[in-house]
Design a protein around this nucleic acid. Structure first.
Length: 270
DNA sequence: ATGGCGATCTGCGATCGA
């Protein structure tokens, strides 16, 4: 079972890139982030025509996440518990959607995650509202993951974490050290998430330096390979024990009108 | 030091991303 994550930076602007990639990569499940549309604006017809069921948690202009799956959804859950609930009970930022499908050996749980960027950071010790929101969101994600681990299911938390785990995951560690994606507080929250018992698929399967998943549109970042690795697959033990392959589809960044992120794919014996 | 690129909105430039 191929399970992918990709921050597409608008599903409407990227529809041709996405359908081309789905046809060639042929993932069973694709977690998308930054679809930048309300649910009604999602191109259901074009995606369903490729054989996918679609679960969408959209939002106007910003954010928005989705899960595409060739297997039918047994369950779909939107938003993390914790805060920012509106009157209708929904989060005011659409950044999390989780689904369960039935694999050959039983249930497989997958989440599509768009973790807040958090910049600008502001000044210590209070920091900006945006950075505090990021750190709180990481706490909420950890709490959700911790509540799921007792199910002992294959669990894949896939998404744009806006976290650069290590210095080897960024072209210019010194230049990025104050960034919300690379600060000590961010690293501490990311470690806390891993330390409940999750494995980062890249670290288990690859671990090389400079394997980036994002290159800025500006300053020739792609041409100069000035990237960062911020898109991750975090795995429960039951998923980590079943992963057989891991790849970053870097070639997608060379296409016409590309997203600034590229797809990350794990293959699982599930 | 410096947001230089790209998407969205109902705009006639602003805001946001990372």
């Amino acid at each position: 079972m191929k399970i992918a994550t990709w921050n597409v930076n608008s599903i409407k602007a990227r529809l041709d890139n996405i359908t081309d990639w789905l046809k060639s990569a042929d993932p069973d499940i694709a977690c998308l982030q930054e679809i930048k549309t309300v649910n009604d604006g999602f191109p259901y017809m074009e995606i369903e025509a490729l054989g996918y069921n679609v679960a969408v948690h959209g939002q106007k202009s910003y954010n928005g996440v989705a899960i595409l799956s060739k297997l039918p959804f047994d369950e779909v859950i939107k938003d993390l518990p914790g805060e920012d609930l509106l009157d209708d009970g929904a989060d005011d930022q659409a950044r999390y959607i989780e689904a369960v499908v039935s694999g050959a050996r039983g249930p497989v749980r997958v989440a599509s995650i768009y973790l807040p960027n958090g910049n600008p950071v502001g000044d210590a010790p209070d920091y900006s509202d945006k950075y505090q929101y990021k750190l709180r969101w990481m706490d909420r994600l950890r709490a959700r993951a911790q509540s799921l681990l007792p199910y002992e299911e294959p669990l894949i938390l896939a998404g744009d974490y806006n976290v650069i785990p290590y210095a080897r995951d960024v072209h210019d560690p010194v230049g990025w050290q104050g960034d919300a994606a690379f600060r000590p507080e961010t690293h501490a929250k990311f470690r806390a998430l891993l330390n409940i018992g999750l494995t980062e698929a890249f670290e288990q399967m690859d671990g090389r330096e400079h394997q980036y998943t994002f290159w800025d549109y500006q300053r020739g970042a792609w041409q100069n390979n000035q990237g960062i690795r911020i898109d991750h697959l975090l795995l429960s033990p039951q998923a980590a024990d079943r992963i057989t392959d891991f790849q970053i589809d870097k070639f997608v960044r060379d296409g016409t009108k590309p997203s600034d992120h590229v797809p990350v794919i794990g293959t699982f014996d599930l």
